[in-house]
Each structure stands twice: as C-alpha cells, then as structure tokens.
C-alpha cells in the first residue's frame, strides 16, 4: 500500500528530471519514431525476398512485431531502471535505498523511467490497431493482447532483474541486465525459426516465446479456443517467472557488499 502511494510522487520527480535535458528529450522522440519506421522498413525488405516467414505473412508479422514491441515498451516505461543497478552499486547509491523502509527493488524501478518509451508504446498500439483492421481481428482479442502484453512485460522485467542482480557480487563491474535487449530481438520473430534447443529455452527456461510468438501464432491460425487458453497460460508463466526472479534478486542482495563510495 505504501508503495502504491509513492507512485505519483516518483513519477512527478522523474518528469522534472527530464526537463534538465529538454533538447535531448525531443531528439529522443524523433529518434524513436525514425527507429520504429526503419524497423518496419527492414521487415518490409525481408518480405521482398520471401512470401512468408514460418507461415507469417507481412501483416501477420506486423502483429507479432506490435505485440512484442508493446510488451517491451511497457517494460521500458515501468521497469527499465533496473539497468542502472550496476552504476548504483559502483557509486554507492544503492546504500541509500537499503536504508529506507520500502522494498529495494521497487525503489530501483521507480527511481527513473525511460521518457521516450511512451512514444514507443503509442507506436506499438498503432501497429496492433492497423493489423487488427487489416486482419479483421475482433476488438475483444485486441484488448486481450494488450492485457497479455502488460503481463509479459514482467518477463522482460525478470530478465533484467536477474541480469542486474549479478552486480551485487561483482560490485557493479559486470552487469548482464542489458541482455534483455538481445532477448527482445528474438521475441520479434516466430519461435519456430530458431533451432530446437533455443525453442525449448525460449518456451520453458527464459519464456520470451510467450511474449508474442506463441499467442499470435494461435490467433492468426484462428485457433481461438487454444488462443484463449494460451493467454491464461502466458499470463501465469509471466507472473511465475517474475516471482522467481525477485527471489533470485533477494538472494543476491544478501551477497551485496557496499563499495563505500
């Protein structure tokens, strides 16, 4: 409850921080629009070479891209600050968080957010909206896909939490949290294009296949009953994965030794 009350003050504080580098903020928004357009252009170029990729046509691939991007954008909006744990450890800022009577992981997440990720989020929603119209997808399924993305953003959060928790034993020198960007690249494509071993890992170990590839495949195959069931499974897997990663975080935190900076 205490944590919920603090969300708005944290957001106000973070927005004020953005005003320090206003020019960069606008450049960032322009950059993200360019980045998203060029990402779609790359997909288009791929489809000039082939008619479909693992059974996904261009428009279906756009839906996959939109859902994966939405999930990633939600992670960036709310949980991205876990990427800064390495520097927090190095410069001793984590000590401040440890002294406060609020959950440390929550404080880390709320201490900063990715301002221009909100633009990414809007762009992902536009892509999903466009493909829903062109593919005649029912609005109910679109809403369910958005809810799914909220849950699956926990998978990205979990990956970055585990990655950043390694900073506790390396005094912030080695930090694997950036690895979440690599996993996002894999989440944008059908899971079947990767080899059997990787497919297994992405389904059962680091479940990024559930972010978009598995549910969207069922949806475009009009396997609605399986799709609805898999949505529940995907949400459950996301929550369980996140819970496990927070346990790992708490364990690793017990190994933390301050640098004294």
């Amino acid at each position: 409850m205490k944590e919920l009350k603090l969300i708005i003050p944290f957001f106000k504080y973070n927005f004020k921080r953005l005003q320090i580098y206003d020019k960069d903020f606008y450049l960032g928004i322009v950059g993200l629009i360019i980045e998203n357009i060029l990402n779609l252009l790359m997909l288009f170029f791929i489809y000039t070479l082939i008619p479909s990729l693992d059974g996904f046509t261009f428009n279906e691939m756009l839906l996959l891209y939109g859902v994966a991007s939405l999930s990633f954008a939600i992670w960036r909006c709310l949980f991205i600050n876990t990427l800064n744990v390495g520097s927090m450890v190095r410069y001793g800022r984590l000590d401040t968080f440890l002294l406060r009577p609020i959950n440390v992981l929550y404080q880390v997440m709320m201490d900063g957010f990715d301002d221009d990720a909100w633009g990414d989020l809007v762009f992902a929603l536009l892509v999903i909206g466009y493909t829903a119209v062109t593919q005649s997808i029912n609005i109910v399924w679109v809403i369910l896909l958005i809810i799914l993305s909220i849950f699956t953003s926990l998978i990205f959060a979990g990956i970055s939490i585990v990655g950043s928790s390694l900073s506790f034993i390396t005094q912030g020198i080695a930090d694997f949290s950036q690895i979440v960007y690599n996993f996002f690249q894999f989440a944008k494509y059908p899971i079947n294009i990767f080899g059997g071993g990787m497919k297994f890992v992405f389904t059962f170990v680091i479940p990024i296949g559930w972010v978009a590839a598995i549910p969207v495949k069922l949806l475009i195959n009009h396997n609605i009953r399986s799709f609805a069931f898999m949505l529940i499974v995907a949400c459950g897997i996301s929550v369980i994965f996140f819970w496990i990663t927070t346990k790992i975080w708490n364990f690793m935190l017990t190994k933390y030794v301050s640098t004294g900076s």
Binding site: I20, Y21, D24, L27, G28, G31, M42, F45, D116
Partner: peptide, 24 residues
C-alpha cells in the same frame, strides 16, 4: 548542443540498422 546523448544515439542506431548493411 544537447549535453545528453540518448536522443542522438537512438537516431544513430536506427540509421546504422538500415543503412550500414550490418543487419541486412
């Protein structure tokens, strides 16, 4: 001019993605 780097780095990464030939 901007003192911060995030924005221009995003533009650079996007440009390199398509025009560098490293991904396609």
């Amino acid at each position: 001019f901007t003192y911060s780097v995030w924005g221009i780095n995003t533009i650079k990464s996007a440009v390199l993605m398509v025009l560098s030939g490293a991904y396609f």
